[in-house]
Write a protein that binds this DNA or RNA. Sequence first.
DNA 1: TATGAATGAGCGTTCATTCAT
DNA 2: TATGAATGAACGCTCATTCAT
Lengths: 205, 205, 205, 205
Amino acid sequence: MGVDTESAEQLNWRDFDNDSLPPLLSAAVQTFVTHGYHGTTTRTLAASAGMSVPGLYHHFASKQAIIVAIMDYAMDDLWRRSIAAQAEAGPDFEQQLALHIECLALFHAYRKELAFLAATELRSLEPEARSRHIAARDRQERMLVEVLRAGVDQRVFRTTDPHQVARALITMCTGISQWFDAAGPLSASAIAKDYVDYARRIVRT
Amino acid sequence: MGVDTESAEQLNWRDFDNDSLPPLLSAAVQTFVTHGYHGTTTRTLAASAGMSVPGLYHHFASKQAIIVAIMDYAMDDLWRRSIAAQAEAGPDFEQQLALHIECLALFHAYRKELAFLAATELRSLEPEARSRHIAARDRQERMLVEVLRAGVDQRVFRTTDPHQVARALITMCTGISQWFDAAGPLSASAIAKDYVDYARRIVRT
Amino acid sequence: MGVDTESAEQLNWRDFDNDSLPPLLSAAVQTFVTHGYHGTTTRTLAASAGMSVPGLYHHFASKQAIIVAIMDYAMDDLWRRSIAAQAEAGPDFEQQLALHIECLALFHAYRKELAFLAATELRSLEPEARSRHIAARDRQERMLVEVLRAGVDQRVFRTTDPHQVARALITMCTGISQWFDAAGPLSASAIAKDYVDYARRIVRT
Amino acid sequence: MGVDTESAEQLNWRDFDNDSLPPLLSAAVQTFVTHGYHGTTTRTLAASAGMSVPGLYHHFASKQAIIVAIMDYAMDDLWRRSIAAQAEAGPDFEQQLALHIECLALFHAYRKELAFLAATELRSLEPEARSRHIAARDRQERMLVEVLRAGVDQRVFRTTDPHQVARALITMCTGISQWFDAAGPLSASAIAKDYVDYARRIVRT
DNA sequence: TATGAATGAGCGTTCATTCAT
DNA sequence: TATGAATGAACGCTCATTCAT
């Protein structure tokens, strides 16, 4: 994916000020969110990026390549933030859970469109990218499952099925991208704090 | 929506044995889930329903009319079950919350495709149906918010923002439709029981 | 064409009170005039005749058969009237011309829709009916040419090219069907009188 | 219609050597004449223009836009020639009538297909273009009516109803487009001369 | 790079027609 | 006879993509 992961630990995972997506992809994200992949035409894509259709094809080989770049970027961004959050959390499982959920919540609030696509357009990916996406999603889920399982082993958490709880927590956070409004009364960090609380309660011993 | 709600209380809201969707719509649900609305062609739709394309148009005026019928059915089915669940719960707010979450979880497990479309294809609806869908979704959400708010007022529940909790619970349940496997190790009712537990813990005083 | 021509001489060629077209064909004439043959669907045809589509096919083998019946009827009706007019005119060429033009004018006024189709939808006929229509049209034209030619031979008329004059007169009358209004200030017979005058002037010695 | 009328007087209205219709529209004229608007498919149109269907849509927004361009062109071309003819005629009403009829006759001979469509496909135009076409047609008719009326006032012409005579003359000329054959024995200018004679005779005092 | 012009394939929809009832 | 249901073929139009300039 051409992303250097070596510097992941230095990454400030709470910082969403700058979006490193190229303008073309940023515009494409909006369009795909609004109309879906199949409902979006290359003309719309080109127009939203302020260029001609052949101009589009100068940067990307196909419409599929554009959604793939977006999906890859989304999964990679979330993964790098999650790694950084876990690194910051240190060995305490409660803290690991807290920062993991905070990371998920912030991502789905600040990057709501990107996150929405990641959750929605899996079916629009062609086989290769789809496999990659599924792998990334599973790796992401496994990361949380491991935190929960370890916490349960240490009697810090209590739950019958860490896997199921992980999925519940993840989809709960995923939902944020559907209704979060940056201009609304709730800040992303306030929401994240609440969701961390929900998570703690769910696994409280 | 032309549905008689007077018999809602007699409805057995835990019974998902029979799907009253006409075969054509059942087939369409599968196809729309797999390829999305815009990724589905009328030829695919016709083939999946075992008929010709004009045959399709004999029953429905347009491709849009098909997704509209599905979306309306989904929201109406969930609503009627929710009403029945609340009626069964009686005046106890804890019981109301429990049955409401159970109802949501069961619906998203047993009717996972239908529920998935309801959550995914809002953007594919034309204005009129879209407004109707949003209204139905909001009504559904409001119902849960009211249970939470009333419970908080009675000191049965504790939460800073019933509205936010409702959305967290709803999207948590919505997520079930993404991974539930009827052939898997977890039964729908077992999952529902767990999710009721999660909900209780989140609002525990 | 299954029309008995033996009684042609008894026909009152100035009488347009009763249209012997079956109701279905009368309705079809209106529809074809409004939308053209190819712009008219069998559903429209059926609706305008107050019957179902298969009901239409009970009476006529195809959409083509309907226009053919109309076109045949139109050409036959005009022909029979023309024959009757000529019979009434007797041996005088001036009178023959007068009654022939009167007949043409009346037909294109009183049967304006029918006449309009006859002039317009030739191209929509399939080969066999088309040939028949062209033959009928030519026969009709030849009839007028013969009157003119004979009149020229007898020094009653003067023109360099009877054929061309015939076409000019015919299309002049054909035009009536485009603007005649039964509710307008000009009666069909007044118009016919004027057109006879035009014709006389054109061939005046 | 985006046509500069200021140079109308310089226009040589008898010159039909060059058709300024773009090739695509020229091909479309032939096809529409043969099959009618509704009987012509976009595939036929594309094939007759030697291009693909999307190629067609690169130049015109729709099939309707093509017939509209043709119809507008036809009415505009005839109008500009008529203006030029009248300018050439000067103040003499007999001369005005003569040149007007010559212009009409030449147009319907040299541009027979275009003229045929203008007379035939009014009903295929959508409301806006239809209104424009009717206005152009009426303006054209009014021009001739005015010549006749003025001539009658000056006792140069004699007729009871200039309006009716105008229509008779116009439709007579319109008819030329139905049978004129450039390869036939009669030249367009010879025909025009004859038709001018017919017109003169009809209004002779 | 950017663009105007082009295209094979396929879109949602409708056509004339048929047939069991 | 009349109808509801059906269909192969074709409709007008648009898709993602390409290429000469």
